[in-house]
């Protein structure tokens, strides 16, 4: 338990170990620890950001889906409307065509009727002349009595 040179030896040893630790142990260890700390910090930050991105993407996807649905509904509605329109147009066209056909048929009928009347009239005129001839027992000069015949025919 004497105080001797060991005291100085221990002091020098102490300082030597402190120096060693200061130079070769502390800096790399703390460097690694700080680097890891940094890594963890950035990792956490990135995770948070990724979470936000995911949330954003989800919302966007939902929006797009909704929009698509709306568009689809709109398209279907438009198609329906167009179909009704087409049907209506077709109906109108059919009506018009029918009317037109009716009118044409009527006109033809009228024409046919007129022609028949004309024919009938001329036949009646001929018959009347033949009757008058028979009655008068003379030949009526057709040329001489053209006026008369025409008058007759007009009266018929």
């Amino acid at each position: 338990m004497n105080i001797n040179l060991t005291l100085i030896g221990q002091s020098i040893t102490f300082l030597a170990f402190v120096w060693f630790c200061w130079r070769f142990v502390w800096p790399p260890l703390l460097g690694v620890m700080q680097e890891r700390e940094q890594k963890i910090a950035t990792g956490l930050e990135e995770a948070e950001r990724a979470g936000k991105d995911l949330e954003l993407a989800r919302r966007k996807a939902a929006d797009q889906l909704k929009e698509a649905k709306e568009q689809a509904a709109e398209i279907i509605e438009g198609a329906n409307r167009r179909a009704n329109q087409i049907i209506d147009e077709a109906k109108q066209a059919a009506h018009a065509e029918g009317d037109r056909l009716k009118v044409a048929a009527k006109a033809e009928i009228e024409q046919e009727l007129n022609r028949a009347k004309e024919q009938l009239r001329s036949r009646v005129a001929a018959l009347s002349i033949a009757g008058a001839e028979k009655i008068l027992s003379v030949n009526v000069d057709a040329k001489a009595h053209d006026d008369l015949i025409d008058q007759l025919a007009a009266e018929l």
Binding site: M1, T6, G9, Q10, S11, V18
Partner: peptide, 11 residues
């Protein structure tokens, strides 16, 4: 050993 502890304290 007091030499050791006092030696460190001395440093």
């Amino acid at each position: 050993d007091p030499n050791a502890t006092l030696g460190m304290a001395l440093a």
